[in-house]
């Protein structure tokens, strides 16, 4: 597994795409820091960028990469290697190379801006942690797409759809459900629905750490009581990890049966 990880990581980290991704983060983070001049505001703005961009890039770029390395995957799978090792290694290579670009691209400007010694360090770390987990989750989803669809155009479309679903459509359904149950207390329902979507969960975690919960009034206090308490943090982290572990399980199972 480690051999495969090593090759795919070094292949990807040297690609133009990684560089573009890194530069994009460097530029946008520096620009946001420069324009807001304030770490809290910059963290909020970066939150929007990260929540939108990381899932999008991870799924779509992930799918493109997997389609492009399809023939080579065939060659490697014909070598004496377990399919599980191959796919896990390649997955780690993909997600870690994307994550490295993200961590450097966003981290460097913030460090340069003095986030380390400031009281916003914990907020910043939550932001980075959420970005990191989203990268791992959504590059995993790209596997599902690339293995499921032989047709690249279809796969590419589906990757976009997954992204659209998780970032917009899910929330639309979420909102409709809340409207439907308008006359009942829906705080707990809202918490459960949030747990099921990693983008929402990431967003809520960052927001609560940024003290925006105050904006939500009484319900904010309820959410804060859940997500801010140790149990809530544990449950949220567990859920995010489940978002990795369960798909990995299915990926391995599917990959073992798949024809190449």
């Amino acid at each position: 597994m480690f051999k495969i990880f090593k090759y795919s990581f070094f292949d990807l980290i040297r690609s133009t795409w990684s560089l573009v991704y890194l530069l994009f983060f460097l530029v946008i983070t520096s620009a946001i820091l420069y324009m807001s001049g304030d770490l809290t505001k910059a963290i909020i703005s970066m939150m929007n960028v990260i929540l939108m961009l990381i899932p999008l890039v991870s799924t779509v770029f992930g799918a493109i990469y997997l389609y492009n390395s399809r023939e080579f995957a065939e060659l490697l799978l014909a070598q004496p290697i377990k399919r599980k090792s191959f796919f896990l290694g390649q997955y780690l290579g993909l997600s870690i190379s994307l994550t490295v670009s993200f961590l450097i691209g966003v981290g460097l400007p913030f460090i340069f801006w003095g986030v380390i010694g400031s009281k916003y360090l914990s907020n910043f770390l939550v932001l980075m942690g959420v970005g990191l987990l989203l990268g791992f989750i959504f590059s995993l989803l790209s596997y599902w797409v690339a293995l499921r669809f032989e047709n690249r155009i279809k796969g590419f479309g589906f990757a976009l759809f997954i992204w659209l679903f998780m970032s917009v459509i899910y929330d639309g359904i979420f909102l409709l459900i809340l409207i439907w149950f308008e006359s009942y207390p829906t705080e707990n329902l809202a918490i459960i629905l949030t747990l099921f979507n990693p983008i929402d969960l990431g967003r809520v975690l960052i927001m609560l750490f940024l003290d925006t919960s105050a904006l939500m009034g009484y319900t904010g206090a309820v959410f804060y009581k859940f997500f801010g308490a140790l149990n809530g943090i544990l449950i949220s982290s567990m859920t995010l990890f489940l978002w990795i572990i369960i798909p990995v399980f299915f990926l391995v199972r599917y990959a073992n049966k798949k024809d190449f």
């Binding site: 090759y7 795919s8 070094f10 292949d11 990807l12 040297r14 690609s15 492009n68 390395s69 399809r70 023939e71 080579f72 065939e74 060659l75 014909a78």
Partner: peptide
């Protein structure tokens, strides 16, 4: 294999 495509980088 029939098609020779390798990791580009």
């Amino acid at each position: 294999p029939q098609i020779a495509r390798f990791p580009e980088n």
